[in-house]
Amino acid sequence: MLDTKARKLVEPLINKSARSLLNFGLSANQVTWLAFIIGLTTGFFIYLDHFLLAIILLWLSGFLDTVDGSMAREINEPTSWGTLIDITFDRVVELSFIIGLALRFPEIQFSLLLMCASIILSMTVFLTVGLLSEKEGIKSFYYQAGLMERSEGFILFTLMLLFWEGIFVITLFYAGAVLFTALQRMLEARKLLK
């Protein structure tokens, strides 16, 4: 929801950062890789109890992940390969974070398993609708908005580490919100895909 509704508020910062990185000589795919590598470290830092560092790196990774697409559009060179690695790397970063939580908090592995299952279901609907839809948006595929998008996921990831005493409840809420989003997307898809 925030990725869709609030993006216009941070768009000037994203575009300025995109132009700066392009002027620095970086390509969109290089920034995608940089965001991936930074995000991949979050699970390791969670395991080591460096929660604040994991949160900072998660958000830096997410910001760069937003900037890379703006870079590609700025020079009018969005590619299917860039879209593929972007979406794939997003999921791997999320998995790194979740695996770090599972190793650090083994007592909540059941709720983390529910989170993973809900993500798989929601992403299956999201990607399938994007593939089957003839509509296109700002991205190189049809972006189906929903209650839980990446920003909401990052907010809940952050809350899991800031308020780790309530992590079980937060992870269950996360799973429920993602399942709701999958249902929301299915209902929209039913109207869209005739």
Rank of each mutant, 00 (worst) to 15 (best):
L2R: 08
T4L: 00
L9E: 12
L9P: 05
V10N: 03
L13N: 05
R19Q: 14
L21A: 07
G25N: 10
N29E: 13
Q30A: 13
L40W: 06
G43T: 04
L53Q: 06
A54I: 07
L57C: 02
L64T: 09
L64M: 11
D65K: 06
I75N: 05
P78S: 05
T83W: 07
F89H: 10
R91A: 01
I99R: 02
L101V: 06
L101D: 03
L103Y: 12
R104N: 12
F105L: 11
L113K: 09
L114A: 15
I119W: 00
L121V: 14
V129R: 00
G130S: 15
G130V: 11
K135V: 01
G137Q: 04
K139D: 13
Q144A: 14
A145C: 00
S151Q: 03
E152N: 09
I155A: 07
L156H: 12
F157P: 06
F157N: 11
L159W: 10
L161E: 03
L161D: 12
F163A: 10
W164S: 14
W164M: 02
E165K: 12
F168E: 11
T171V: 15
A177K: 00
T181Y: 01
T181I: 04
A182F: 01
R185V: 00
M186G: 03
L187Q: 10
K191H: 09
K194M: 07
